[in-house]
Design a protein around this nucleic acid. Structure first.
Length: 312
DNA sequence: AACCCGCGCAACCGCCGATTG
DNA sequence: GCAATCGGCGGTTGCGCGGGT
């Protein structure tokens, strides 16, 4: 069936940028009478525009509750997380960001976030490590396949998503490492610290990785605060980068799915049970440290570490 | 100074599902 | 049940601006 073009019957309606006078007319009318039927509005408001254009102008620009200005890092993080769950459902994403319109978020994504993710080696569509990078192709796939069997309950969609997120987080960190190893040999201490079992804590190792990897990427990935970006993605906010230390005490506790992902499950996608199980949005730092500890100590069955082998 | 290029953003286009008569 | 209409959504376009050459 479909719908005929909005203003096909009236080719005389004005198009293009709105003038301040038109804006004022629209605002005055809506403030006085509400928008009512959009199709009828232009005539009643004395505007030579189609109703659709009026609605768009109002919802994307003139509405009084619209927040202007640059997106904050927190908003950006939220958008990325929501997009990983909802996809290009801009209007649904917008409902989680008060004052931001779907159009604004869409533009922000297409002009900013998308490019940033690409530069970080992440496919903005799938939120997984890009597979078009030759040297990472097999590795990324291996990462995803190798551990799914250990972690995944195929009947639990939410848990599956968490698992994917965990894999993504691992893959991203490793990917950054690999890129450095491929393109820059200036950080032998980094790998020594990790592989040669130097007396560093896991928290120190994480900070070292971030310090060594991220700043070098910052120039070409467009991330203003790459450490914050990575840190936020991993939900670990208590790391003291300068001193390579954790700012909080942490303890290692058993957890089946220890590495919190870049992707957080939206509350609406969880069953009540899962919501109860996921009631903490941010995982305790201890889980992060434990995750890395596990990654570095994991036994692949031959008495060696899977991750150490990769790093070596 | 002139030109080019990339970016950000407002606005448009066409499709869809819901509603209405 | 069906077609017309509506509001809404996502994709795309095109313009203005700033920076680089």
């Amino acid at each position: 069936m479909g719908r005929s073009p909005c203003c096909a019957e009236d080719a005389n309606v004005k198009k293009g940028p709105w003038t301040p006078e038109e804006d004022q007319k629209l605002v005055d009318y809506i403030n006085k009478s509400g928008h009512g039927c959009w199709r009828a509005l232009p005539k009643q408001a004395g505007l030579n525009r189609c109703g659709k254009s009026c609605r768009l102008r109002w919802t994307n620009y003139l509405r009084p509750d619209i927040k202007r200005g640059k997106f904050t890092e927190e908003e950006e993080r939220l958008i990325i997380n929501l997009h990983s769950v909802l996809g290009n459902k801009w209007s649904r994403i917008a409902t989680h960001l008060p004052g931001r319109t779907d159009n604004e978020i869409k533009n922000f994504w297409n002009s900013h976030v998308r490019r940033k993710l690409l530069n970080l080696g992440i496919d903005p569509l799938t939120h997984k490590a890009r597979t078009d990078l030759d040297h990472l192709l097999n590795l990324s796939q291996l990462l995803c396949v190798a551990q799914l069997g250990n972690l995944m309950n195929p009947l639990d969609a939410a848990f599956k998503l968490q698992t994917d997120a965990a894999q993504l987080a691992k893959a991203q960190l490793l990917q950054n490492l690999m890129q450095i190893m491929n393109t820059n040999q200036q950080n032998p201490y980094l790998l020594q610290g990790l592989v040669a079992n130097e007396p560093t804590t896991t928290a120190q190792n994480i900070s070292i990785i971030a310090d060594a990897v991220v700043p070098q990427r910052s120039s070409d990935c467009g991330v203003e605060n790459p450490w914050g970006y990575l840190q936020g993605g991993l939900n670990c906010e208590n790391l003291d980068v300068k001193n390579h230390q954790s700012l909080s005490n942490y303890s290692f506790e058993q957890n089946e799915n220890p590495l919190p992902g870049l992707v957080s499950i939206s509350p609406e996608s969880l069953s009540p049970v899962n919501q109860m199980e996921n009631n903490a949005d941010t995982a305790p730092d201890s889980l992060i440290y434990e995750a890395w500890e596990k990654l570095l100590m994991e036994d692949d069955g031959d008495g060696g570490s899977y991750w150490r082998e990769i790093l070596e």
